[in-house]
């Protein structure tokens, strides 16, 4: 009996429908959450968030000019908050863009 079921399991995967494959992928994604990145500004105390450091702030923006969310930056709440105000100040001074209108996708 045991050998019978094993044989079935081996042949089962190719027969999966597209829908069930997607379900498996989804389950896998929720099952293995990535280890949380440590906050870069807490790790390196000397690194200060400043609205004048344009190159530093650019690392925390998408190529469309949006501010990356915390789940992408890995920052702690306090530093993410300071980062957003710094980016907004830099935007006011036209050091950073609000949007990048026409982005080539190809």
């Amino acid at each position: 009996m045991a050998t019978d079921t094993e044989g079935q399991q081996q042949t089962a995967p190719p027969q999966r429908t597209e829908r069930s494959q997607r379900d498996v992928q989804r389950r896998r994604r929720t099952f293995h959450p990535r280890a949380r990145k440590r906050c870069a500004f807490c790790e390196k105390k000397a690194l200060q968030i400043d609205y004048k450091k344009v190159d530093l702030l650019k690392n925390y923006m998408t190529d469309r000019g949006k501010i990356k969310p915390r789940r992408r930056t890995g920052l702690c709440a306090r530093h993410q908050r300071r980062l957003t105000t710094a980016i907004k100040r830099a935007r006011h001074l036209a050091l950073l863009p609000f949007t990048i209108k026409y982005l080539r996708t190809s």
Binding site: F41, Q48, D50, Y51, R82, R89, L93, A94
Partner: peptide
């Protein structure tokens, strides 16, 4: 065309 006045103790972290 644009200006910003900030307290110095607020500029850094």
């Amino acid at each position: 065309i644009r200006y910003l006045i900030m307290r110095r103790d607020e500029t850094g972290t």
